[in-house]
């Protein structure tokens, strides 16, 4: 794509979320209540899109953040690593309203890292001998058994950064970095909101 070095700072959440459409797979940063892109999470609801697949570590915590997407009924599927006390997800999983896929946390993030790095699948020792390996290919390499996990690409990533510039470079603060930087690499588009509320950056991370 030519001309991608345009100014990526966008004045409004609505404009930043213009690429979001029905049925997309959206990767959302944040671990617990840290690093959640709250303004963008609200913006997706206001955009009125539906049938989304959400990839997130917790998919909402204590009724906050992504729990708003659960209540808004805009999700078809959630891929996460930990539900914990997220009662709204427990309820919707039990009723069949939302399909839930649970991955070990390291496998979840490596699936996204792999997608961003152009690796379609990888062997990992995590989950061998457990329910996680059911239905998946396994292989013994140098005397140890591994399970084959597939890359997990997304259509768009929503993250919260500490500082953003007009080129789309982001800085994160402390452990708020954890999920967001992993999430930006596999998405065809990444949208970040910085802690400065007037500044939104949309940056394409496609190679």
């Amino acid at each position: 794509m030519i001309g991608r070095h345009r100014d990526k700072v966008i004045a409004s959440v609505a404009e930043a979320l213009a690429p979001v459409t029905d049925g997309m797979t959206i990767l959302v940063g944040g671990f617990g209540l840290s690093g959640n892109p709250e303004a963008l999470i609200r913006g997706v609801i206001e955009r009125g899109v539906r049938d989304l697949t959400l990839v997130s570590n917790n998919a909402g915590n204590l009724g906050k953040g992504l729990a708003q997407w659960l209540r808004a009924g805009i999700l078809r599927k959630v891929i996460c690593s930990y539900i914990g006390g997220n009662d709204e997800l427990h309820t919707r999983r039990a009723s069949g309203e939302i399909a839930v896929e649970i991955n070990p946390q390291g496998t979840l993030v490596e699936r996204m890292r792999a997608a961003g790095a152009g690796i379609p699948a990888f062997y990992t020792p995590t989950g061998v001998g457990t329910v996680v390996e059911h239905g998946k290919e396994t292989k013994e390499i140098d005397g140890r058994r591994y399970v084959l996990e597939r890359a997990l690409p997304g259509d768009i990533a929503l993250v919260r950064a500490h500082v953003a510039d007009r080129f789309g470079n982001l800085r994160f603060w402390r452990t708020a970095r954890s999920i967001p930087t992993t999430f930006t690499s596999p998405a065809s588009t990444s949208t970040a909101s910085s802690t400065s509320p007037s500044t939104r950056t949309r940056s394409s991370s496609a190679p």
Binding site: G32, S34, G35, Q105, G106, R174, I179, P180, T182
Partner: peptide
């Protein structure tokens, strides 16, 4: 609030400590 442990409790970081993304952590 942006310096937490895996149990989501706020913590501190010692001199020489580092933070990194989840893919590196795992």
């Amino acid at each position: 609030p942006n310096l937490i442990n895996a149990g989501k409790q706020t913590v501190t970081i010692l001199p020489g400590g580092s933070t990194f993304d989840s893919a590196a952590s795992f």
